[in-house]
Design a protein around this nucleic acid. Structure first.
Lengths: 265, 265
DNA sequence: GTTCTCCCGG
DNA sequence: CCGGGAGAAC
């Protein structure tokens, strides 16, 4: 089972690129972030035509998340991250597919640091830790998939010194990410490639992609039950070079179906 | 010699359509209106690549006119319509090509009627009458080419009654157009097709093009010396149906080179 | 409807 | 640099 995440930065503006990538990469499950479209502007007809069902959580100008599935039935569990009834930003979608809990998340950027937006980010992370801890405690097969807006380590950024004042690279943010790992979550890509410089985002400005001045923001975290099912993964880096591309590249993993199936029973 | 006019409604947004049309219609001279681009944003490189030189008169948000030439040398004469030093809108460009004075004009729309915008339109027409009368008085071979924003007669509009309150169809505007004809100017298209319903503009709204609910706004007027040189003309109506098309269609005429050459000597 | 401009957010 | 939104003009 191939599971991917892709921050599309505007699903309607990005539709040709998205469809082209779906057809070449053929993921079974896709978590999308930054739809930048209202619920009724989600291009469901084109998504269907590409062979995918979808559940989505739109919003007017920013944010917006969706989960696409090819063949697998989906059941929606949550469309908000629990813990703050005042949070009206569309950044979370939780579904069950093939007996796995799949959480599509678009964590707040948090810039400028410091400030209220950063505080919102930290509160969001706190709620994510709480929600995700429940999956661990319940021994559920679960995956946290999406744009975390967190650069986990110095090995995940081209020039660490440029990011020291940025909300994406604050010590307390990185510490929170590490706590997720300590809680039992596995960073798929880092597990597969322990030492490589791997990026998933390159700024539109200053020809960042041409210079490979990137950062790693998009992550796929596996609960303990799924850890041993991980058989492959990567970043579809070339997609970032396509015309009219998002500033993110898609990230994907492959799970061995049989390995986790036996645990669930 | 094939001379055309085309209100492009944004030259940069329209570039693929414009190039495609240039390559299929192959006019020698083209007057463009509504560039909607500043002087430095005019896509001269792409125009050159299509085989045309250009002189243009850009403006920030609206207006903007240009004259393209394939092979013929151009000499700029005026970049404003004389008679009002306070008029800063880029709506006029006068050049000499092959010994003919070519005036590219984008006459003000004038809506809403009545009001200051309509008064500006009438003042502009008054100045145009004055300038164009000079060409007649001087026996010069001259052409007035462009978007006149004037519906000359009831035969130039799909449903005349819908336009009676519109600045494009006001009696005093149509009277002014008729005075140009009385001064000696020849409406090329109407001369070639005296009775046909011919349109050059279809609103983007209400599927106006599909219903052929159009109006004739774009005209090519010949001074007396050139009248007998007119051998062909038409509207490239199909261009209006192309994807990402302007709301106007190109209009063109062909002049017999030898017929007017003998008069000039 | 479709363009462009300015603005925001990233 | 790009998306999307608001607003103006046609």
């Amino acid at each position: 089972m191939k599971i991917a995440t892709y921050n599309v930065n505007g699903i309607n503006g990005r539709l040709p690129v998205l469809i082209k990538w779906l057809e070449s990469s053929k993921p079974d499950i896709v978590c999308l972030q930054e739809l930048k479209a209202t619920q009724d502007k989600f291009p469901i007809a084109e998504i269907n035509r590409a062979g995918y069902q979808a559940i989505w959580n739109g919003q007017k100008q920013w944010n917006g998340v969706a989960i696409l599935s090819k063949g697998y039935e989906m059941t929606e569990v949550q469309s908000t991250l629990p813990g703050n009834a005042n949070d009206i930003q569309s950044r979370y979608l939780e579904v069950i597919i093939d007996q796995i809990v799949i959480c599509c998340l678009y964590l707040p950027n948090g810039n400028p640091f410091p400030g209220p937006k950063f505080e919102y980010k930290m509160d969001w992370i706190k709620r994510l830790k709480k929600r995700s801890k429940q999956f661990i405690d319940m021994d559920l097969p679960a995956i946290l998939v999406g744009d975390f807006n967190i650069i986990p380590t110095e090995n995940d950024v081209h020039k660490p010194e440029k990011w020291k004042d940025d909300a994406l690279f604050q010590p307390e943010v990185r510490r929170a990410y590490n706590q997720l790992l300590k809680n039992g979550w596995t960073d798929s890509i880092r597990t597969l490639f322990p030492d490589e410089k791997i990026y998933t985002f390159w700024d539109y400005l200053y020809k960042a992609y041409d210079r490979n001045a990137g950062i790693r923001l998009d992550h796929i975290l596996l609960s303990p039950y799924l850890k041993s099912s991980l058989i492959n993964g990567g970043v579809d880096k070339e997609v970032r070079g396509w015309t009219k591309s998002s500033d993110h590249a898609p990230v994907w993993i492959e799970l061995e179906r049989n390995k986790y199936a036996k645990f669930i029973k």
